[in-house]
Amino acid sequence: AEDTGVRVELNEEDDGKKTSIALKLWVEDPKKLKGKYKDTGAIEFTFDLVHEVPEVVAQEMVESGFFLDCDVKIVGKSIRDRVALIKWRRERTASPNG
């Protein structure tokens, strides 16, 4: 995935079944953000892989004061990339070759 300066990782082991999964997000490179970033630490949250949209969660982070509005896209993309990877891994596990 593209290096957005915002890192998103699983915050629990993925059992491949739960739709809602714990994620952890933190800023690795504040210079990649357009707005001034307050170093708040890592943000832990749960994300519903089926029903939720990464950009909506990014917007909620902006409204909660973690990021400025100008960075909503970069945060949303970072979450989207991680979610895509989780889904890809699940699909690969669910449909073994053979």
Binding site: E44, T46, M61, F66
Partner: peptide, 27 residues
């Protein structure tokens, strides 16, 4: 531990915790 909790008006819970040093990008 220094954690804080922020609840968004939509009901989502964000928990702020320290970034593990080992996971910070190495320069």
């Amino acid at each position: 531990s220094p954690t804080a909790q922020v609840v968004h008006s939509a009901g989502r819970r964000f928990i702020v915790s320290p970034v593990p040093e080992a996971r910070l990008k190495e320069q």
